[in-house]
Design a binder for these strands. Structure first.
Lengths: 243, 243
DNA sequence: CCCGATCTGTTACAAGTTGTTACAAAACCC
DNA sequence: GGGTTTTGTAACAACTTGTAACAGATCGGG
């Protein structure tokens, strides 16, 4: 991976300099600014991989700034705040933040979170664009991703958990093409939600099994989600997308 | 799989040479060119498995070139760019790129990404081949490759493992033609998944034996899968493909 | 606020698959 | 007939996948 270029936004110049120094010593290329004008200047100069944004900017509202950034740039944002109330955190997420770090924070934690967000943003790139949130049919099933509804051929609705839903979307976006576990995990994580790296360990396998138990006539002899030994899994049917 | 043939396109001759050298040392067959004329020349000369395309070409727009390549060739493209803003990245994907690597990059990452894209392209390419797979009959047997179902002349279904299934498909695609073990192994390796190179060692022989034990009346005196001593094996019957 | 239900990743074990190994058998050649 | 080469195959090891059970986290209702 390229050396990540971070942008620290904090009106407290001492805090800003401290964060910039710590992150630089941990292998990042870091610039520090203190207001939205500084952000605009840095974004115009070149690539920014991640923004660390203080909520309590002097004359400005960090949450509003987060929203503006989110509207104009698709760059990961970590909110940094002295407040750690859950409603603040949720407000940050609603404003479009990818993660949240509460002051005072363990500097090692900051680095870990930065790396995690960078990794997630980076890994999602390859497959995410191929996902399509449109209604579709496959093997007699009807799937509406926006309504989170899956209807069996017999007309009954089948309830899927969030992760099962994500998995099905990934499989439907790549019908008849064997996908590795890593590809599945990357595509699923585009929206976040994994508590750990699911490409490691057996999480994808277990999730495949859970989804099979809901949509296969015989989960022990699956016809829809087949195993591609040594590769991963494949949705072994055609998918018809509806307008 | 054959040695992958890559094409590096970068107007910066030093960067181009550096990437070509690194990729060659990592087991790829690599050519480097500097403009669209060079691309056309290389594509005319023979097979290209993947193109690494710099976005910032001197007189030309890499994104536009990507679009043109996508329209004319079904070859995977990895965009390589000094810019990593996500809108650039999305533009690359919209232009038809399969992946995106930001300069400066970790050379090991580049190799990993190239391998991942090649693998996925290989698996996707096999889709068309699989879709052409049709039901067929041979010597009273009925084989449905899509449903992975083999029915014996007595009407009973015979369960085949994934590798047995692949082997049978290869034999059925080449009836009455003696195939070497290497030819069989290459043809079987459509989706990857082999744990080692089956053309070496006795894996094909053992697999032939396992398949024989399932479909021959007398595996010790095989009538369907005959041995062509010094060559390999041949499916010694006619195959009738069904619509 | 607590508790039950649900979700999801991990763990551990089982089952199945597949390539390798080693030896035997068959085929070929001189 | 003997030696060499090629093929057959039983047994084994390594690997991959399936999955039940569990633990921790989350969420919603009382």
């Amino acid at each position: 991976m390229a050396i990540p270029r971070l942008l620290v936004v904090d009106d407290d110049k001492d805090m800003c300099a401290m964060m910039v120094g710590w992150l630089q010593r941990n292998g990042f290329s870091v610039a520090g600014v203190h207001d939205s004008a500084g952000i605009a200047e840095q974004m115009a100069q070149g690539r920014v991989d991640l923004i660390l944004l203080d909520v309590m900017l002097g004359d400005e509202n960090g949450l509003r700034l987060c929203q503006t950034l989110r509207a104009e740039h698709d760059v990961p944002i970590i909110m940094v705040s002295a407040l750690s109330a859950d409603d603040q955190r949720m407000a940050g997420y609603r404003a479009g933040a990818d993660d949240y770090v509460a002051k005072p924070f363990n500097p090692d934690l900051l680095v870990a979170r930065v790396r995690a967000v960078l990794s997630r943003a980076h890994r999602a790139a390859s497959l995410a664009y191929r996902r399509r949130a449109r209604k579709c049919e496959f093997a007699g099933w009807q799937f509406d991703p926006r309504a989170a509804r899956l209807r069996a051929p017999d007309g009954f609705d089948v309830a899927l958990s969030a992760r099962e839903h994500q998995l099905l979307q990934v499989l439907l976006a790549n019908p008849e093409i064997p996908l590795t576990r890593e590809e599945i995990a990357c595509a699923m994580d585009v929206d976040g939600g994994a508590t750990a790296d699911p490409a490691e360990g057996r999480a994808i396998d277990v999730l495949i099994g859970r989804l099979r138990s809901k949509i296969e006539d015989n989960p022990k002899d699956p016809a829809l989600i087949r195993t591609a030994r040594g590769v991963g899994y494949v949705l072994a049917c055609r998918v018809e997308f509806l307008s």
